[in-house]
Design a protein around this nucleic acid. Structure first.
Length: 540
RNA sequence: GGGCCGUUAGCUCAGCGGUAGAGCCGCCGACUUUUAAUCGGCUGGUCCCGGGUUCGAAUCCCGGACGGCCCUCCA
């Protein structure tokens, strides 16, 4: 967890950390890396006493470019219109689409993760006139801008092209306009039907003053303008932007050569890949992203992003794997190390720091948090599947003392996460189900185990145990008198009822089933003969 | 063609200049009640390849191979 602190140590003077996002599309889990990384940097600065602000910009003057987010009849009307000017979806009381989206997704998600930047809205910044001086400079130096595009990215802009996107006075679109002829006060612009594929301009021609929110700067200039306007000193970006000759290089050059200001320190961060592929809503690989945030609680989610260095890609493939349980286990291991408990394996450089920055509350009592009792995810996942088990009581017993209020909250959160996991990503091997018919796997029962099952059936005939503990005692008693090790006895029960060799606590499992069913299954399994089992392959 | 990242035990990964590590899996053993329990032990690795720097390299440098994502538009 050195990287954030190293960065914080390498700067001097007051700092302004910034991140921003266009409020459209789906926020998949991977796109939370930026906010988490910037939050960690801000916390690192704060913790070493550096005066620092943490800003988050909502680029709501950007054009709506995702038809899938609009009702069909609204597509023609609003594609290409600034998000701040698109109406909120039906049923929302937000004043516009951007506000609706941010209110629905950004605010709750950020809050959940303990990320609390100062939000600003670019539509307001533009409309306040605060950027006018920068817009003027960009237009005055349009040739420099064109040269930067050419030099840095080998992109040739049409002659006469100006770095400004007027908002069409006729149709309100910003994504379809092109401007020329800057006379020092106004530009001439055209709203073109075929400038971009995804939106259709109205064909309007006109002149306007590009100030006061009547026009927006194109992406790379907009970025650099923010740096100047807010005095931003640190801003990372995804590696797609940080590629050589890419967006970041262009914006850096614009900051230096047009706005005459050194660009902020960059932290290029890698993507989060699912199954070796970039998360992508359009390709469906990120479809489960929303669920990931529901299954992985905020601390573990922060941990997921903070554990590796920003420039390392994160491979996270929760579907049908033990990735989520392992994430919890690793988090718990770091918590243990922080609490001073002995842990196995290698530890990252400053485990206690990693743990601290993973906590939602930046002012949390770290030693107390680290010392809290954290039941293992995998263990809970089985307990939760046993009907009638009081998990909280069980955990108190395992801990050896009553759970504190904080531990109870933690437990409740984990149980919820476990349940969601079992419903969504968990591999079949993590789930258990009592088979309606004798499982084929019962063929693997040994003679000693069948004898045990038969003996247990006889024991049940004398009186069905009532509760889990009573069942558990009966199982042990019968196993002992049959001279069978407990492990073989339990294994027999799991094979007979679940078709697998392990499972949740057997006593409680049997107690939850119909006594008649249990008795029948015991006899059936006891009488099972290998010869009647699964046909022995094709012999070849 | 360019950028970044990765390549370490069967699997997932840590270690990132000083005698190869963890978890899971597998195997052996202990355990009469936390049974995916827990605890011991074992098996298992030319640390992608080739050069170089160094007393010493998985770790640094150069070159290469393979894999992933990105570099067009939009933001």
């Amino acid at each position: 967890m050195d990287w954030a602190d190293e960065l914080a140590a390498s700067v001097s003077g007051p700092q302004v950390v910034n991140d921003s996002k266009t409020p459209s599309g789906t926020v998949h889990v991977g796109s939370l890396r930026g906010p988490v990384v910037h939050d960690a940097i801000w916390r690192a600065l704060r913790d070493r006493g550096t005066p620092a602000r943490f800003l988050y910009g909502v680029d709501d003057l950007d054009a709506m470019d995702a038809a899938s987010l609009l009702t069909p009849d609204a597509v023609d009307r609003y594609m290409g219109v600034p998000l701040a000017d698109v109406p909120a979806p039906p049923g929302s009381d937000a004043p516009n689409y951007a506000r609706h989206f941010v209110g629905q997704l950004f605010f709750p998600t950020f809050e959940r993760l303990g990320i609390r930047p100062e939000f600003y809205w670019m539509s307001e910044v533009y409309r306040s006139g605060a950027l006018d001086v920068l817009i003027r400079r960009a237009l005055d130096r349009a040739d420099v801008v064109r040269d930067i595009y050419r030099r840095v990215s080998r992109v040739e802009k049409p002659s006469g092209w100006l770095p400004i996107q007027p908002i069409c006075e006729n149709c309100g679109r910003v994504g379809t306009t092109i401007a020329t002829d800057w006379d020092g006060e106004t530009v001439r612009y055209q709203c073109l039907p075929d400038l971009v594929k995804w939106a259709t301009g109205c064909g309007h021609n006109g002149r306007l003053s590009p100030f006061g929110g009547r026009a927006a700067l194109p992406w790379n200039l907009d970025w650099a303008a923010k740096w100047s306007h807010f005095g931003i000193t640190i801003e990372g970006c995804g590696k797609d932007l940080a590629t050589a000759g890419g967006s970041r290089d262009r914006s850096d050059a614009i900051a230096r050569d047009v706005f005459e200001r050194e660009p902020p320190s960059n932290v290029a961060y890698e993507f989060l890949n699912v199954g070796g592929r970039k998360m992508s809503t359009s390709r469906g690989t990120g479809a489960a992203a929303h669920t990931i945030a529901e299954v992985v609680p905020p601390e573990q989610l922060r941990f997921l992003f903070l554990r590796p260095r920003p420039n390392q890609a994160i491979e996270f493939n929760p579907d049908g794997t033990d990735a989520i349980p392992r994430l919890f286990d690793e988090f718990d291991r770091i918590a243990d190390a922080t609490a001073g408990r002995e842990v196995r394996g290698e530890l990252p450089p400053h485990p206690e720091r990693l743990f601290e920055l993973s906590l939602v509350d930046p002012d949390a009592d770290v030693p107390a948090e680290a010392a809290a009792f954290r039941p293992a995810f995998g263990h809970l996942s089985l307990l939760v599947q046993v009907p009638g088990v009081d998990v909280a009581e069980q955990m108190a017993a395992e801990k050896g003392s009553p759970l504190t209020a904080a531990e109870q909250t933690l437990l409740a959160g984990r149980i919820a996460a476990v349940r969601r996991w079992l419903e969504t990503y968990a591999p079949e091997s993590a789930r258990y189900a009592v088979m309606d018919d004798l499982p084929a796997e019962a063929a693997r029962l040994g003679e000693d185990q069948r004898l045990f099952l038969g003996a247990l059936a006889l024991r049940v005939d004398e009186g069905t145990p009532h509760a889990g503990a009573e069942w558990q005692a009966a199982i042990f008693a019968v196993a002992t008198s049959a001279g069978l090790p407990a492990g073989r006895a339990f294994g027999a029960l799991y094979l007979a009822f679940l078709g697998r060799t392990n499972g949740p606590r057997a006593g409680w499992l049997l107690a939850s089933l119909d006594p008649g069913f249990v008795a029948r299954r015991l006899r059936e399994a006891a009488g099972w003969r290998p010869a009647e089992a699964v046909p022995a392959g094709d012999g070849r």
